[in-house]
Design a protein around this nucleic acid. Sequence first.
DNA 1: GTGAAAGCGCTAACAT
DNA 2: ATGTTAGCGCTTTCAC
Lengths: 339, 339
Amino acid sequence: MRRTKQAVKIQDVARTAGVSVSTVSRVLNGKVDVAEETQARIQQVIDQLGYTSSLAARSMRGQKNNLIGLIMPDIAYPFAIEVMKGVNQAVAESDYDLLVFTTGDIRKYGTASQEQKYVSLLNNSITDGVIIAAPAAAEFSSEAPIISIDPLSENPNYPAIHATNYEGSREAMRYLLGLGHRQIGFIGGRPELTSAKRREKGYRNALEEAGIALDETLIINGDYTTETGFGCARQLLERENRPTAIFAANDQSAIGVIQAAQAMGLSIPADLSVIGFDNITDAAYFDLTTIDQFISQMGYQATKMLLRLINGEVLEQQIVKMKTCLVVRGSCRSLMHLN
Amino acid sequence: MRRTKQAVKIQDVARTAGVSVSTVSRVLNGKVDVAEETQARIQQVIDQLGYTSSLAARSMRGQKNNLIGLIMPDIAYPFAIEVMKGVNQAVAESDYDLLVFTTGDIRKYGTASQEQKYVSLLNNSITDGVIIAAPAAAEFSSEAPIISIDPLSENPNYPAIHATNYEGSREAMRYLLGLGHRQIGFIGGRPELTSAKRREKGYRNALEEAGIALDETLIINGDYTTETGFGCARQLLERENRPTAIFAANDQSAIGVIQAAQAMGLSIPADLSVIGFDNITDAAYFDLTTIDQFISQMGYQATKMLLRLINGEVLEQQIVKMKTCLVVRGSCRSLMHLN
DNA sequence: GTGAAAGCGCTAACAT
DNA sequence: ATGTTAGCGCTTTCAC
C-alpha cells in the first residue's frame, strides 16, 4: 500500500493539466462548457494521479453527496442487523450510498443530546438525510430530512416507521380465534408501559369482538422475563381446563412459555399454539422464522421514505405503522436469536 | 421534528455569547486558556442553540475525528454482518466511533478504481483510518492507515487480516486423523483457484505426514455447488469401503455432503464426520456453529490493528493470518446461514 | 471556454 | 484571556 503523505488535491490536478482549478472542478461535476479536448486531458490527469475530491471540502460547499446516514448505538444487535439489511436493500436499489454511524455500544451512545450530535454530525455536513433507529431524543434539528425507526413512542414528533401494539395484538387474537381456539391464556407484564397496556387491550377487545366471555383467570402478569413466562405458562397449563393457546406479551415470556410446554411434553402447535410479542419492535410475531424479515422491512420502508423526503416529496403519511400477522410453527430459533 | 433550515454555526454561538469565534472554538476543543466564566456562558449558549460543529469543516482543518471507517460492498451479506460484529466490538471498547460505508450491492460497488474512491472519500477527509473488506484493488493511496480483511490474496500489499487455506486444511485433517479416521474423502472443485489448490495440498500433505497412503479415488472434484457436493458425497458414501469422514473444500459442497448423509440415513458425526471450508473467508470451519464467530474475529482483529496504526504504532506483523480449527457437531444451521 | 477570487465553517497561529 | 486572520479543498459567481 502506498501511503501518500500528501493527498492529491484539485490544485495538483490543475497544475499537472496546466489549467485552473475551476476548470477541473467543472470536469469533476460534469459541467458542459468545457472543451472536449481539455476535458479529456484533465480526466487523464485525474486517473493518472488517482485523484478523488475531498468529501469534507465538497460537503462544506453544500453539495449533495448522494449519501444517506443510519444512526444506531450498536450494530451487532440482532435488531440493528435486521434494520441494516432492509436499509441496505433500499440503498442497493437507489443511487445513494449509505453511511452507518455507530458508537459500538449503547453505553457509549449517551443521551438524547449526544444523539442530536450524531444527527448533526452527519446531516449538517456530509449526509443528505438520516435514519435514526430507536431514538432517545424526542426532537431533532437538522437541515436535511430525518426518519426514525421507532418501536417505542406511539406518536413521535418526526416522520417514523413503527410497529403496532394494539392492532397487532388484535390480529394475533383473530388468528387464534380463527383456528378455533376459545381458551386463550394471556401472559402480560410491565403494566406501566403503554405498549403493554395496548397489547392487553387488543387481547380483550378481540375476545369481546368475537363474543367470547372474558375469563380473567386466563390473564396472568409476569414481569417480561423468561422465568416468569415459564412460571405463568406452567400455571396456565396445569389448570383443569387448560388453554389451547397462549399469548405472551413479550419475547422473553414467549421463550418461557415454549420451554414450559416442552417441559410438560406438549408439542407446539399440535397441543398448544403460542404467540409472542417482540419487545423490540413491538411487532406481533407468530412465525418465529420470519420476524427478522419484519424488522428488515422497517429498515427498508424507512429508507424509501427518507429518499422521498430528500427528493423534496411531501409525505402523505408521516407515521407508517407496520402490522404483521404471522404464525408460530414451533421452532424457537429466531426467538432465541432475537434475545 | 424541527427542521432548522439554517444550521447553527460557530459564528452564531459567538455572536450570541458576545465573544469571538476563536474563543468558542477553544471551549469546543477543551483548551485551557479560557476564563471559567466565559467558558460557562459559552457552553450554555451551545446547549441552548443546540450547536454541533460541522464534521466537514472540522475535517477540512485536518482534525482527528476519532472516527474509523469500514468499507463493504454490501452489508446484508452474512460475511459482512459477522465482520461488522467484530469491528463493532472493538469499536465499543475504544473511544472511536465507526462509520460503515456501503453501496448496498456489490454490483453498484464497481471496480478497483471505484473502491479507491471510497477509501479516499473517507480516509482523506473525515476518517482517521479505514478497514476495507474483501478488497478488489491491489493498492491504495491514502493519508490515513488502511487495514484490509482479505480472504483472497495470499500476500496483499497492505496490512491485512486473512485466513489460511493450506494451514487450515492441514489442521482440519490432523483433527480428523486424531479422531482415528483413516478413510477420508475429499471433495474439491474449481481447480483454477489458488485457494482451492492450497486446500487440496493441505489434505494431501496431512495424509503424507501421518504416513497414510493416499487413495486418489477418495478425491473427487465437483464445482463448489451444493448439487455436486451432494453427488460427490453420494458417490463416496456408496463405495464398498465408505469413508468415515468427508472434507468438503467449500461451503456449498459441504451442504451437499450433509444433505447426502441425511438422505442416506447417516447421522453426523456418529456415522460420518464432515468438514467444510468456507468459500468466503477461506477459513476452515469445523464447528458449524462457530464459523460466524471466526469471521467476527477477523473484523475484531482488523479494527485493533487499525487503531494501533492510527496511534502511530509500527506493526511488527503486517499480515495476520488467522487459523481456526473447530469441530463439526452435526448441526448445519450456521452452514445454511452462511449461504 | 477558461481563469480569478470569494467563501463554505472551522482551527490555529499570531496579535493584543 | 480573548480577538483577528489565514487558510483547509472545494464550488461557483463573475470576469474576460
